[in-house]
Design a protein around this nucleic acid. Sequence first.
DNA 1: TTAATATATGAATACATATTCATAAGTTAA
DNA 2: TTAACTTATGAATATGTATTCATATATTAA
Lengths: 105, 105
Amino acid sequence: MSAQDHYDTLSLQDSTILAETFRLLGDPSRLRILFYCLNEPKSVGDIAEQLDLSQTLVSHHLRLLRGARLVIGERRSRQVFYALADDHVRDMLKDMVVHIKEEEF
Amino acid sequence: MSAQDHYDTLSLQDSTILAETFRLLGDPSRLRILFYCLNEPKSVGDIAEQLDLSQTLVSHHLRLLRGARLVIGERRSRQVFYALADDHVRDMLKDMVVHIKEEEF
DNA sequence: TTAATATATGAATACATATTCATAAGTTAA
DNA sequence: TTAACTTATGAATATGTATTCATATATTAA
């Protein structure tokens, strides 16, 4: 993106794409899943157990996150390990936490 | 936030707060409103006209955004001008666009 | 005051979605 | 093969929410 590009007009299409990502981040369970997988891949069962969510629910959420390319899954024998899709997603999440924590409530 | 703090565990409370913000950003109309007000305050009627949204709908969305302290409104005689609440919100939105645009789809 | 303009609010509706339950599908061990 | 383990999927439900309509509130002009 060049320096002269501006952000103040968001096309209908761009806003829809961007909103879709935000919408997926707008659920506490999904956010916790993403942050739990932030640094290293985690298995579905591990996620469910550590975050105290049902295995079924975790699977459903992971499917949505996969569809938006926020995570990728890799099968290792019986288990499937999920990780953030790339560093952009990782940095984005870290940035968001910084921004949120900087707000005084 | 100090350097030794980590991001990989998001408490239930933190995830709820963070998700609430993301959820609000996860709507195309609200996103467009926020970006339209990114650089200078805009009146409700101006927003509605330029984004082709009903005045009522814009008001409803602005109320939600106000509630989350993402925007602030200032009355100038008959009109009310809305602006982003602070630079954190502004930077956050700009960062997100950069991240999204960097993804190759 | 009344009229006109600008914004906000409450109710109603239609649609989306988070969660649970039951069960299927994939993988490994016996 | 069967059995155990792990993950995914489809249906059902209950809750949430974006949008519209009608109307109220606030401000200014006449």
